[in-house]
Amino acid sequence: MISPFLVLALGVFLIVAELLIGSFFIMFFGLGFLIVGVFGFFIEIFWYHQILFAAIISVVLLFTLKKPIKNRFYNSKNEVKDDFLNESGMGEVKEGKIYFKGTLWSYDRELKDGEKVQVIGTKGNKVILK
C-alpha cells in the first residue's frame, strides 16, 4: 500500500501543476489522487489498486466535469465587436490623411488640413467618405 500522505501529496502536486500549466486536464488526475488518498486512511488496499482507482476516478471526473467547468470559466457574456473601425463617424484631415478613430487613414483625393469629413467606413487601409 502506498502511504495515503504520499497519494495526497501527489494529488496536490498535480493540482498545483495544473495551475501553472493551465491545460485544464491535469487537475482531474490530481482530484482522483486526492480522493484515493482520503480513502487510503480508512481502507487498506494494494498499491496497484490505488493507482487503478485513481485513474478510473480521474477519467470519470474528466468526462463528467470538464465541459461544465470549462463553460463556466470560459463562457463570455460580453460580446466583443471586432469591426468597430468599419463604423461611420466624423474624421479630420491631418497631414494629407484622414484622422479617424485614433488612426491616420489614406484617401485618394486632396483635402485641406483641419477639414472635417464624414466617414462612412473603412476598407483595407483607406477610408470611404460621404
Rank of each mutant, 00 (worst) to 15 (best):
K77M: 08
K97R: 08
Y99V: 01
L104K: 00
F63W: 09
L104S: 02
F100Y: 04
G102F: 01
K81F: 15
G91P: 00
I56N: 13
I45L: 00
I120Q: 09
Y99K: 01
I56P: 07
V38N: 09
Y48S: 15
E44Y: 11
I51K: 03
I69D: 12
P4A: 10
I128R: 05
F5A: 10
N71H: 15
L65E: 06
G37F: 05
L111V: 04
V119L: 04
E115N: 05
M90H: 12
N78S: 15
I2W: 06
V80D: 14
K94D: 04
F24L: 12
D82T: 14
I2M: 10
K126Q: 12
V7C: 06
K112Y: 13
F29I: 02
W47T: 07
K116H: 08
W47Q: 10
V7P: 01
L6V: 11
L19K: 07
F13H: 05
L62G: 04
K101E: 09
L52T: 06
I98W: 02
K123C: 15
F28S: 00
G96N: 02
K112E: 14
I69A: 13
I2K: 06
K112A: 13
F100E: 00
K67S: 10
F73Q: 15
F13Q: 05
S3N: 09
I56G: 12
Y48H: 15
K81T: 14
K77Q: 09
L111Q: 04
K116Y: 10
L10K: 06
S58C: 01
T64I: 08
F63D: 08
V60E: 08
E92H: 12
G124N: 05
P4H: 06
P4N: 07
V119R: 00
Y107T: 08
H49G: 14
G11H: 02
L10N: 07
N71A: 12
E92S: 14
E115L: 05
K77D: 11
M90Q: 15
F13Y: 07
I57E: 11
A55V: 00
F33V: 03
G96V: 00
K77E: 09
E18N: 02
L34D: 02
K126R: 12
R72K: 11
Q50C: 09
K67T: 12
I26C: 10
L104E: 03
G37A: 10
F39M: 14
K116W: 08
D83C: 11
S58D: 01
S23P: 07
I21E: 09
E44V: 14
W47G: 14
N75I: 08
